[in-house]
Amino acid sequence: MLRLPEAHRDLLKIPFGTLYRDIGELLPLIEGRAIYAVGDVVTHNLLSAGIVPDIAIIDGYTMRTPCTRSPLLQARRITAKNPAGTITDELVDAIDEVIRDPPGVIFVDGEEDLAVIPLVLAAPSGAAVLYGQPGEGVVLRIVDASAKREAETILKAFVRE
């Protein structure tokens, strides 16, 4: 399991992509792409806009309170344990499995906030990764070599336990 030390938590306060206030603003940018969503609210908002993500990673919570808008997708469902502030091998394995054979929903027992990092590393070039930036909007990151390098840099701040 990888844990992000408290001293490096500020690394994730800066959006890991382009921040949009409303999901409607980015819809033209994701057309024709594989769409990977991290978070219950982002997934719900995509579904409300008529877009079913190829992969959704959810935990049933938003900002540490139960999310009453958890999406019910018809895709196969994998459960992975992932405590807050960590990236578990179980989560990484679930991401790898669903990327190899989409669509799928990964339901995280714990917290899915950091899943965007291994998701970008595993995703094919051109995929659209979306996640929520609490109180600000939704972040879009199109996967490319730069995104993968940045994810690797962030991952180096983690410590293996």
Rank of each mutant, 00 (worst) to 15 (best):
D113P: 03
A145M: 03
D40S: 06
V138Y: 07
F107Q: 15
Q133Y: 04
R33V: 07
E111F: 06
Q133H: 09
G24E: 15
V129S: 11
A80M: 10
A80E: 15
I95W: 06
F107R: 12
D54E: 14
L72Y: 10
L114K: 05
E25N: 09
L91A: 14
V52S: 15
S48G: 09
L114S: 11
G132E: 15
V105L: 10
E97N: 06
L91C: 13
S70I: 11
D113T: 01
I106G: 11
L121S: 09
S146R: 00
M63R: 00
R33M: 09
G126E: 12
G135F: 03
P102V: 02
G137W: 02
V41E: 11
V98S: 07
G137H: 01
P53S: 14
I99Y: 06
N82H: 11
L119R: 07
P71Q: 08
V41G: 04
D40V: 00
L29A: 13
R21N: 10
V92G: 00
D144M: 00
I99R: 10
G126I: 04
P71F: 02
A80S: 13
L72F: 03
T79Q: 14
P71S: 14
T62R: 05
G32W: 05
I95T: 10
I142H: 11
L29W: 02
R33N: 12
A84N: 10
L114G: 12
C67W: 06
I23L: 15
I142G: 14
V139F: 01
S125V: 08
G32C: 08
T62F: 01
I57N: 12
I51C: 08
V116M: 14
I23F: 00
I87F: 00
A127H: 08
K81Q: 13
P28K: 05
E97K: 12
E136C: 00
E90L: 01
I23W: 06
L119Q: 10
R77P: 03
N45G: 07
A49K: 11
G132T: 00
Y131P: 06
R64H: 09
Q74C: 02
G137M: 01
P102M: 06
I55A: 12
A123N: 09
P124C: 03
L130F: 01
P134Y: 03
E90H: 04
Y131I: 01
R33I: 07
